[in-house]
Amino acid sequence: MLVEQIAVFVENKPGRLAAITKILADNKINIRALSVADTADFGILRLIVDNPQKAAKCLQDGGFTVVVTEVVAIEVEDRIGGLATVLGHLADAGVSVEYMYAFVNRSGENAIIISRFEHMDNAVKVLEGTGVKLVSKEQIYSM
């Protein structure tokens, strides 16, 4: 139940995000969600797109450093305490979160939380055990 995410190394200088998104646009790749992790000197752009392999290749050809990693997409009810419940389960099981970012599914009322855990397999097991709804890659890519 893992989803492919592409991560791109971005130097802190003007125009880099524009260059990346232009490459994606030129190759007709649709962005589902994104997050930028920034430090003093560089950033890591993380993207969920409709065709990760193609996106990774286009960006590599464009001179960017790219890695494809697997993340979990969790569907959370768009209500107060929705995320807290899920994170509560993970905390109880001692699973620690590397990073997460969210977007709202345009067709539904639910939010999708993209999450990266320290131990992915263990996290998925815990999540599945709690009955939380995980979104498959097919679903994500075709949203």
């Binding site: 991560a7 992790a37 890591i44 450093t65 790219v66 990693t69 990073y99 990266r116």
Partner: peptide, 10 residues
């Protein structure tokens, strides 16, 4: 930063 060196984790 090469591919080998790069990671999605800060």
């Amino acid at each position: 930063v090469s591919e080998q060196f790069f990671s999605d984790k800060v």
